[in-house]
Each structure stands twice: as structure tokens, then as C-alpha cells.
Design a protein around this nucleic acid. Structure first.
Lengths: 166, 166
DNA sequence: CGTCTTAAGTCAGCCTTGTTGACTTTCCAA
DNA sequence: TTGGAAAGTCAACAAGGCTGACTTAAGACG
């Protein structure tokens, strides 16, 4: 139909203008999303990559390096550089697998858990304020759109974590 | 109250669990968000920074370097490196200001506009699919949460662009 | 047992994109 | 006429991606 509707359903939210606003919103919001942890990390000799590693090791205690690689979507060499410093600094512990001794299982130490808690609390504080300002219905929509935006290959990692599956 | 409600209003959406899901959704979704333009850019000798510059020059034709700096949130030196290659390659034109001749006003050339169109169409396609899958109400919530997540100092740039203000 | 594969780690080198700091040129405005 | 803002440039550095090549250890399997 010429008026932008189909069978009574309004599709105005799919115009290029609307999409552009969503794109710009993603760009600016992501800056805010990372701003607070980045400020904390800047004082130490760590960066965003260390935060991500700490986050997912905390979320999936005892995860293997290979699994972490898949979740983070980076190369082994890239992750290894980050992981090595975290292990050397005593924030992460790497244990040889009991069933398959080729694997290394990763755990946060008490110190690592403390930094992770500090970083994620800063990030949650902003998210909490945004959620509160927008309300529960908006939050549901927010999560729906984000989930639909993920690559198919990535979404399974997200839903597994979301539902607390191993 | 001990059951997570306050005056009848359910605040379950503000639990740390819910916030964590939102944080992980942002992380994975942003990867999808940038994936398609990144693939196109990988073939050329350009990166994500070039895409961002092209996008905002297109959105605010004739913008000054200083304004672009504020919107992108990077240093002059960082932007300059990107801008120089775009100008050298004939994708962006830099015109001396007519009123204030210290300023440079930035415009896309026909070639620059063509690349910008290609990149943003790839990005819009994914956004369109996500919007369509989630529906108009979810999209409204998505935008509300993102806007609330931005830094205060950044939100004005977003709303100015959103409403088409100069 | 021997071979193949997988998991992990490492070394070297490259690129993009961010940063600081110092400096120049241009030119508006007080 | 002079101060300061806008723009641009050079140098140096760091984080964090990447590829390629290679080693070590150990499970899998014919």
C-alpha cells in the first residue's frame, strides 16, 4: 500500500528515518555503557578487554579457554595476552582439566572477583538508572530488539547465559 | 518490602540478574550492529572510524571539525588521521568557512556519499530485521532505554540529530 | 602402538584507533 | 595590535584487534 500500512498494521517504525535514529541511539548509548568501567580501568593497567574476560569468567566459572574464545569472539592470541596478565596479577586462576587434561578451566580469585564486582556494579548502576527511567515495558522491548540484532551464531551464547544453562 | 515490590509496583525488572542480562545483551548486540559495515570496510583500507566520520558528515552536511569532534568523542589528532585519508581519497571535501575562515566545513563528495549509503544500508538492513521481529512497541522501549543510558553530555547531540535540529 | 586431532600457549609482526604533548598557522574579536 | 580560538601537524606511545607459524600435551582411534 502507498500509505505505509499493510492490512491495517502501521509500519512507520520501519522507515529509514526511524532506523537511523536507532543506529545513532546504539552508537551514543554504547559509549555511555562502557564509560564507567573504562574510567575505573584507566587507573590500572587494564582495559576493556580485561573487563570482558573477568565478566565472562565470573559468569561461567570454570569455563575453558576455548569456550571463552567463542563467547568473546576474538582470537586465541588476543585473549591470551589479556589472560596472561590477569593470571600473573593473581586475578584469575587457571586449573588443568580433571577429565581432559588438555583443557584449562578459569576461575576468578578473591581479588579478581572483587575487581569484577566493582566494574560490574559501576555498569549496573547506569543500567539501573536507565531501566528505572524507562520502565519495565520499555526494558522488555529493549531486550527484544537487542536479541534480534545479534548474529545468529552469537545468540546461542547469549541465551545460554541468560537462562543459566551450562 | 521483602518481596521486591513497592506500593504495588513491581520492581523485579531492576534486579541485578535483569541488569546483567541487559548488559550482556548490549555487548552481543553491539557486535552484530557493527558486523556488516565492518565486513564491507575490511576490503578497503578503511575501518570503523571512517564509517563514523562518513555517517555524521552525511547527517550534518557542512559541519565543522570541532563539532564532529564533540559528536564522535575522540581527539582532534585521532579524527584528523581518519579525515585526512578520506579527503585524500576524494570521499570528503573540506571547505574553508565563509563567515569564519578558520573553520573547515565538511561535505561528502558523490563518491563519499555512495560509500556512506552502502555502509548505512548494510547496517539498516540488520536494524530493520530486528525492528520487524520485535515490533513497534518493543522498538519504542528500545529507544527509550538507550536514550536514558547515554551520558548527559552526549544526549544533547543525539536529540539534536534526532529532531533534525542544526 | 602410531597417527591424527584438539586445546592451549607462544613468538613475531602488523594494523587501526585511541591517547598526550608540543608546535605552527590562520584569523576573529576585543 | 594582541590574545586566543580553530585547525592542522609531528612524534611517540598503548590497547587490542589480526595473521602466520610453531610447540607441547594429551585425548581419540584405527
Amino acid at each position: 500500500m502507498a500509505d505505509g500500512t499493510t492490512g491495517g498494521e502501521n509500519l512507520l517504525f520501519l522507515t529509514d528515518e526511524q532506523l537511523r535514529k536507532g543506529i545513532e541511539a546504539m552508537f551514543f548509548a554504547y559509549r555511555g555503557f562502557t564509560a564507567d568501567p573504562d574510567r575505573i580501568l584507566a587507573d590500572m593497567s587494564y582495559g576493556r578487554a580485561h573487563h570482558r574476560a573477568l565478566h565472562f569468567i565470573n559468569r561461567s566459572r570454570g569455563t575453558t579457554v576455548n569456550n571463552l574464545l567463542a563467547v568473546l569472539g576474538v582470537t586465541k592470541q588476543s585473549l591470551n595476552r589479556v589472560l596472561r596478565t590477569l593470571i600473573e596479577d593473581g586475578l584469575v586462576e587457571s586449573r588443568v582439566g580433571r577429565e581432559d587434561r588438555r583443557e584449562r578451566h578459569l576461575y576468578l580469585t578473591a581479588e579478581g572477583a572483587e575487581l569484577e564486582r566493582q566494574l560490574s556494579e559501576a555498569q549496573r548502576a547506569r543500567m539501573r538508572a536507565a531501566y528505572r527511567a524507562a520502565g519495565p515495558q520499555a526494558v522488555a522491548g529493549f531486550r527484544q530488539v537487542l536479541e534480534a540484532m545479534m548474529d545468529d551464531s552469537i545468540r546461542s551464547h547469549y541465551t545460554a547465559l541468560k537462562d543459566g544453562r551450562p
